[in-house]
Simulated assay, not measured.
Amino acid sequence: MSPCRSKPQVYSGCDDGSRSGRLRTGGRQIMCELAGDGVYLSQFVTGTSNGGRTAHPGGDRWRWESRIFGGAYDHAPAEERPVYGARRLPCRVGWHSGFRLTVEHLRRHPGYRGQEYVALGAEIAVDGLLDPRIIGAAAGTGRYDSQGLKKVRHCVARFGSSLAGEK
């Protein structure tokens, strides 16, 4: 069995109680699992998606995989389905310091994802700043559309600067 197909082990060294990370089915933060287990899991295992949540029998993702893999995994358990999206598995997984973006800088780029996401970013910002923790906290409130927050996150990733070396 390859390292990327091994059973995930319990890892609890990541939860700071903020619940700001994306959670998979079962409540564990996805990035904590990646860092602790070093195993890249499919959407069928995590129950999450960066787009539509269609990784279930009969869903769009399931039908697409059925077509491209010739039905080979149609009846396979989630843990045995193909894992892709990372290069040359097994892959080393690690943390980086993330990015942050000022609302001032965000306002310079309304054409990237749209003015409504600039406004959303400004609304959820803390002290004029956006970072993954802030976006995650906004998601945790349930008051904001997850697809809108995803587009704000795109802006932070595209125009933000590294937090490396900051205290």
Rank of each mutant, 00 (worst) to 15 (best):
Gly128Arg: 10
Asp37Met: 03
Pro3Gln: 11
Ala72Leu: 10
Gly121Leu: 02
Gly21Asp: 01
Asp74Glu: 14
Phe44Arg: 07
Ala86Trp: 04
Asp127Tyr: 04
Cys32Lys: 01
Arg67Cys: 08
Gln43Asn: 09
Gly121Lys: 06
Cys32Arg: 02
Ala76Lys: 12
His56Arg: 10
Trp95Thr: 01
Tyr84Val: 08
Thr54His: 14
Leu41Val: 02
Ala119Met: 12
Ser49Tyr: 03
Leu163Phe: 08
Gln43Tyr: 01
Ala76Ser: 11
Asp37Cys: 13
Arg53Phe: 05
Arg5Ile: 00
Trp62Arg: 05
Glu79Phe: 04
Arg100Leu: 10
Pro82Ile: 04
Tyr112Ala: 15
Ala35Cys: 14
Ala125Gln: 07
Ser20Phe: 03
Val103Ala: 14
Tyr144Pro: 02
Cys32Leu: 00
Ala55Val: 04
Glu65Val: 05
Leu41Ile: 00
Thr48Met: 02
Pro77Gln: 09
Gly58Arg: 07
Cys4Met: 14
Cys155Ser: 11
Arg133Val: 12
Cys4Gly: 09
Phe159Met: 05
Gly114Ile: 01
Leu106Arg: 02
Tyr73Thr: 08
Tyr117Arg: 10
Ala76Tyr: 13
Asp60Arg: 12
Cys91Asp: 06
Thr54Phe: 10
Pro3Lys: 13
Gly71Lys: 10
Gly58Asn: 07
Cys4Ala: 15
Ser146Lys: 11
